[in-house]
């Protein structure tokens, strides 16, 4: 067994053509290496998000290059920018349409806390309406910061108990 039980261990000398692992670990391995983002670009952070997707920073190194503009095909909502109260419920509706399991990155100061906008019109952090997994500091954060957040999220996804959460889902009668 590997030292970290959430990682997949494979020793060719011992195991040959057979991989011995835990179901949680292998399912999480699938999940965390293909987090398809839903780019919720609302302000200048979205420009950095685009840069993260382009060749210089290349988010595809982490399996997240498939930006889906449909919530039904995405796993990860990247809220990049200022969430106004007028936009708030639209963001929530898009999040609600994403299939489980799903995660949220609040990219930048605005999405995390409202940023410099202490105002009647700006929601003071998207965590008022969504469960945020990773917050990224910066105004706007550089693409590297977003990639770091993605790696942190991958670590988090890798530790989630898949089987148990699926059993815990309510059974419809």
């Amino acid at each position: 067994m590997p030292e970290n039980p959430t990682e997949i261990g494979y020793n060719t000398k011992i195991e040959g053509d057979v991989i011995v692992t835990r179901a949680d670990a292998v399912l999480n391995w699938f999940r965390k290496n293909s987090l398809w983002p839903m780019p919720m670009g609302l302000a200048c952070c979205a420009i950095e998000l685009m840069a993260a997707g382009s060749s210089r920073f290349d988010i595809s190194r982490f399996g997240s290059e498939v930006m889906r503009f449909s919530p039904r095909q995405s796993d990860l909502m990247i809220v990049a920018g200022t969430v106004t109260y007028k936009m708030g419920l639209a963001v929530k509706r898009i999040y609600d349409q994403m299939a489980e399991p799903k995660w949220v990155i609040a990219m930048g100061a605005c999405a995390s806390t409202g940023g410099m906008y202490r105002s009647y019109a700006v929601m003071q952090g998207v965590d008022n309406i969504l469960p945020v997994d990773v917050y990224v500091a910066g105004c706007p954060p550089r693409p590297e910061a977003l990639l770091d957040a993605l790696m942190k999220l991958q670590t988090k996804v890798g530790k989630e108990p898949v089987i148990r959460t699926q059993k815990a889902l309510p059974v419809e009668a």
Binding site: Y85, L89, G114, Y117, R118, S119, Y120, V122
Partner: peptide
Amino acid sequence: LAGKATELPEVAFSKPA
């Protein structure tokens, strides 16, 4: 400046900053 709390179901809500 901070705004006021409002609630309009299905449309939008707002809270003072």
